[in-house]
Amino acid sequence: MNVLSKAVCKAKKTIRRYRNQMHRWEYPPSAGCITVHPDPIVGGGSDGTCFDPFVMPSSSGYTLFMSRRATESVVRVDSRDGVSWGQTVEVLGPNSQSGSWDSAVNRACVLTEERGWTMWYTGQHEGRSCIGIARSDDGFRFERAQGDPVIEAELPFEGMSVMNPDVVRETDGTYRMWYAAGEDYEPDVICEARSADGIHWAKRKEPVLARGVADYDCYKVGGCHVLRLSSRRLAMFYIGYQNLDVARVCLALSDDDGASWKRSILNPLISPEHGSWRSDAVYKPTALIDENGNLRIWFNARSKRTELVGLAEARACEVLGFE
């Protein structure tokens, strides 16, 4: 591509983004029952851009795993209250082998198990993403459990990339993963797979959630986090894209153990806010319900090129529809 062609492509991209972002404030900054902390809680400073958080309860409070763009790695940070966080520690770095499928790593989720800590993560190389597995004895130093990905894009709707694994372990020991698939820059659909060992996965033959008809997710859907509410009821917090440059946190509910999903009437839950650190787009949610029935949603958001992690809170019954 010559200099003139590159200039034309850059100009077209700038115009596209300008037009897309004209829609970023078409919804309220949050659903009425949700309170968003005014300032980001993680990222910036020496960490720079941090994105796609995954939060889990820990013995000391909360542990957050997230992606750090500057080092193309997964980092960990801990907190007593879920609001004030300590120093970040790199727990999984990029694969240094030339041409590796995971020469950059990000978008991870973690479970604590009998054998220790298990991480499923996104590995990226030359415009393609796959999902890998790593393990740790202490939750601070993860080693790849095998050299190859555990999930790659194979089915027509998966496009070129699979990413954003979200794994739960059911009471019978079965693993269930929800993951995003499609384009590498931003995925298109949310999919599901099941496994007996966390390594060999059987994929559902169609997406579980695709773009909707309402403006907030009419373009595509992406990275999700699933909570089990009862034996049959699940809640899926996910990214809804109005276009390539405007995204929001949304919610879908299932009353049949994930066989089908229905979008919440509260959608979108969290949207860009004019003049704030989340003015352009809001991305990957992760959610927990505490012992007092409070729902907490951590997410990352973008203003221009800077992405940071924030927190929103609500009464779980008001968002999820149960007492």
Rank of each mutant, 00 (worst) to 15 (best):
K6T: 13
A7V: 12
K13R: 13
R16A: 12
R16P: 09
Y18A: 11
Y18N: 10
N20F: 11
M22N: 14
W25C: 06
E26H: 14
Y27Q: 03
Y27C: 02
T35M: 10
T35Y: 14
V36M: 04
H37R: 09
P38F: 05
G43M: 03
G43C: 07
G44V: 00
F51K: 03
F51M: 05
D52I: 02
G61M: 05
S73T: 00
V74N: 00
P94H: 04
N95V: 05
N95M: 08
S96A: 11
A104N: 08
C109P: 03
V110A: 03
T118V: 14
M119G: 01
T122M: 04
Q124R: 13
G127N: 03
C130S: 13
I131K: 00
I133T: 08
A134H: 03
F140E: 10
R141P: 03
R144F: 08
E154K: 14
F157I: 14
S161H: 11
M163N: 10
N164P: 00
D166K: 07
T171I: 13
Y175K: 06
Y175C: 05
R176P: 07
Y179K: 04
A180Q: 01
G182R: 08
E183H: 15
Y185L: 15
I190F: 04
A196H: 15
D197V: 09
I199F: 12
K203Y: 12
R204C: 12
V208D: 04
A210K: 09
A214D: 12
D217F: 00
Y219C: 13
G223Q: 01
R232D: 15
R233Q: 14
R233W: 05
L234E: 08
D257G: 11
D257I: 13
D257H: 12
N267E: 02
P268Y: 00
L269Q: 02
L269H: 02
I270F: 03
G275D: 05
W277M: 05
S279L: 03
A281N: 05
A281R: 04
V282D: 03
V282W: 03
V282K: 03
P285K: 01
A287D: 06
L288G: 06
L288E: 11
D290V: 01
E291G: 03
E291R: 04
G293Q: 01
L295T: 07
A301L: 06
A301E: 01
S303Q: 12
K304T: 08
R305L: 14
E307T: 14
G310E: 02
L311S: 02
A314M: 10
R315L: 09
V319E: 06
F322G: 11
E323H: 08
